[in-house]
Design a protein around this nucleic acid. Structure first.
Lengths: 300, 300
DNA sequence: ATAATGTCTTTTATCGTGAAAAAACATTTT
DNA sequence: AAAATGTTTTTTCACGATAAAAGACATTAT
């Protein structure tokens, strides 16, 4: 198998959802931009929709014949890119018990275990290396540096530096900048979430990421913006497999965000700095408290 | 051709230099650590040294028979790793006239031009992407963001943030830390270079990197330490192909370093901050003044 | 018993290949 | 003539294969 057609399958699934909304589909280029794929892929999708009786397709005419049924969709797991599959497997190993710092990482073994080629694993590891959790020995293996307390401290140190600077840049943005409308919209979403926190607390992490990315973008610095990828990755996986006190944590964080947003809207640099510091401090505490560390401290 | 034996050739060349120093070579494992290669490679090296009459080799006995001649060495260009070759070609293109921002980067074309496989080019681009000069469009080409004024400003912004913090951490290091001895050694080297600056000005960039890396290491933060790779890369290539006022530039920089070193040794945070700021400011000026930019400002 | 050498196995680095997806070109339709 | 469709070419993505290099195991020498 040389290359999976997950792009096609994923776009097909997303395309199915369009069928509920209209009587006939738009032009091929339009569908392309809508689904974020090339016309080649759009045509494959249309072909299958025709074959399975979802649409009648004749040149510009793409009439919807019926609504999609559950079995029209490709299975979820077939729509993931190889990179996503590898990342998930790797992160599961990394955050699992027994992933000690200093451990060697074997490309071949990883590839066999996941059931993919070595090239894909190599490329993943190279991409992943910028997160600072692994390191390459030239002409030899990778070394796991581990998701340790030291890592969390180094990560948060940079995060705090970058976010304080971004937040300061944010308030200096002109009145007519589009960010203020974005901020208003985020505020509304925060209020909605706050009022239904008991049931929707698990939707916080997605909102959290959008909020912080908006702030970081105000720095207009690609290194700061890109660094948020590291934070997002850590938070994504870490909290996915560590649900302790998730509701309480998120409840506190939403309130901190609201205070932070209010400070930003006041455009008072002093207030912003204080609100930002407060939130970052509790974010750091949350992250640190979830790292066990100290196995080596137990008496023999 | 699947894999070049540049590791062997490079280690062989370095091994030749050992022959001048001793009558007989040490054990295989010892040679391995000395040359930074595995025993397998050491044995290949010894085999060739025996074949070409450089040594007599019998088990533990490796007697030097003659000094190496120029033609014993492998040609320099055969000792470079593929990654280095690709990097050089790519950087030449990038810093050459006509490398406009927004331009597409074609893996296949690059690979053909350099005469290597696509995999190596892909891996290089992934590794290179962390420098913030290129960006990947999913399932499609890479986009060149260009070595622009904006890039230089974003780079220096982070650099200044990181270095000021590292310098502050440096002075807080205990009296008995090894860094003070390192600093003393660097100071001596700076003084020597300063006294012979007229002839040795081109040796500055190597010293510059060692000095700044020492300071950055005091941060004990992997993200700060790793970020220096971006700076080092830019400086390496940029100045390699832009020799204008090299001597004057370096002469000034050496003096600034000496002042900076004196400030560090005084352990006075205020002085360190001032010296660091001064040097970083002139470093930024130097970098900025060497970026043309403004082609688009010319009247039609 | 330790450390080196000799031999064999595994892993990494790189390539060519082929299918998926994108992109370019040609033709038709409005 | 502008925009869509139809067709062909090019590029990206992922694989298996192979030589280089590393690493592991077995044997020999001090």
């Amino acid at each position: 198998m040389s290359k999976s057609n997950n792009v096609y399958k994923d776009a097909f699934n997303r395309g199915l959802r369009l069928l509920d909304e209209t009587k006939s589909l738009p032009s091929e280029p339009e569908l392309g931009t809508l689904l974020g794929v090339s016309r080649t892929t759009v045509r494959s999708i249309l072909s299958r929709m025709e074959e399975t009786g979802l649409i009648a397709w004749n040149k510009r005419n793409k009439t919807v014949l019926r609504s999609p049924r559950p079995d029209d969709f490709f299975p979820e797991e077939e729509t993931d890119s190889l990179a996503e599959i590898i990342e998930r497997s790797f992160m599961r190993r990394l955050l699992a018990e027994g992933a000690e710092a200093g451990m060697q990482i074997n490309e071949l073994e990883l590839a066999r275990e996941i059931g993919v080629g070595t090239t894909s694993v190599r490329e993943f590891l190279i991409r992943f290396s910028r997160f600072g959790l692994i390191e390459k020995r030239r002409n030899s293996h990778w070394v796991l540096k581990g998701f340790t307390r030291a890592f969390a401290l180094e990560l948060t140190e940079i995060r705090e530096m970058f976010e304080l600077r971004s937040a300061a840049a944010f308030v200096a943005l002109p009145e007519d900048s589009a960010v203020w409308a974005d901020l208003d919209r985020l505020e509304v979403e925060h209020r909605q979430l706050a009022s239904e926190i008991a049931t929707r607390f698990n939707e916080f992490s997605e909102l959290d990421e959008r909020f912080h990315r908006l702030i970081h973008r105000a720095s207009h610095n690609r290194f700061i913006v890109d660094f948020y990828d590291v934070i997002a990755m850590i938070f994504h996986y870490h909290y996915q497999w560590n649900k302790a006190q998730e509701r309480e944590r998120n409840e506190v964080a939403v309130q901190e965000h609201l205070a932070y947003i209010a400070a930003l809207k006041s455009r008072d640099p002093g207030k912003v700095d204080a609100a930002c510091r407060k939130h970052l401090k509790s974010a750091r505490q949350t992250l640190l408290s979830s790292i066990p560390e100290g196995r080596q401290l137990q008496p023999a």
